[in-house]
Design a protein around this nucleic acid. Structure first.
Lengths: 146, 146
DNA sequence: TTCTAATGTCAGGCTGCCTGACATTCCTGT
DNA sequence: ACAGGAATGTCAGGCAGCCTGACATTAGAA
């Protein structure tokens, strides 16, 4: 009787995997510098006038060190650059390179297309509802769950 | 104007993190053997008469090796046991131990509670829509995304 | 000026996932 | 009957994304 509903965390993971695989294989197919969703996210929260690693960490909800590491990879890949912040010597601003722009735009386009395909499959209404539900602020899990 | 909608993969990750953190901290608070969502998922797809590692791998959508590793951890933690399958010498059936039962039931209960809290926050309708959308079969990302 | 906070970075660790490689054990077709 | 292919379980090694700890440097506030 399959009383066991699949757990939401698992469902969420499956969905994410679908996007992730789709993104990677699509980018790979175009020969563009591949960008993982995690990296794409970094791009997404980057603003045009340059952003510090710490700020990126805050925006993406990870530690400074993790953000640093992600940025480092992208810098190595030639998609980002770090330049000194004229207003403060301890800060280093992160900016996209031209190639970074390109990769970011492409990744975004592919994700949009995937979302479109999802809408086709489950219906536009359902897809919108999914997004709406996920966009609710998650914050931290209420301790009241104990 | 924040034209940058957050990407679905990222939203999915945030949501998953919320559940994951909630689950871990809740289990930790009770002093029970902590079970990660990944491990909980393993329990969820385990049937009562015993299941092989390969079968678990299929059900969870990961490789045999990954499943093996997860099972190994749970066996070490005393939540699962492997016993020889009387019907075939190359197979080893995985079963829950008594403690495994307990941990599984508790994890499931906590996840339900978290889902309930989610429903409170975003509305029952939205929560149900979320689940419904996620339960659509994800299959593989269509190559047509290239 | 001195003390605290913010920033960037290095080092090391964990988990979940993967591929490769094997030894065993079954099963099927000839 | 048996050879060869498929299934099963495992070990080994790798990679990405996270995390904590520890530091040096620089800004800013007291």
């Amino acid at each position: 009787m399959e009383s066991t509903r699949r757990s939401l965390p698992q469902l969420l993971t499956d969905a994410r995997r679908w996007f992730e695989d789709g993104l990677l294989s699509a980018m790979e197919a175009t020969g563009a510098t591949p960008v993982s969703p995690t990296q794409a996210q970094l791009f997404a929260v980057l603003d045009d006038h340059g952003t510090t690693v710490s700020e990126l960490a805050r925006r993406t909800g990870v530690t400074r060190q993790t953000a640093h590491q992600a940025v480092h990879g992208l810098v190595n890949a030639g998609l980002l650059v770090q330049l000194p912040d004229p207003s403060s010597a301890r800060r280093r601003l992160i900016r996209r390179t031209a190639e970074g722009e390109r990769a970011h735009r492409q990744a975004t386009a592919i994700l949009d297309r995937l979302e479109g395909q999802l809408a086709e499959r489950i219906g536009k209404g359902a897809a919108d509802a999914l997004r709406a539900a996920l966009e609710a602020p998650w914050g931290e899990p209420p301790a009241s769950a104990r």
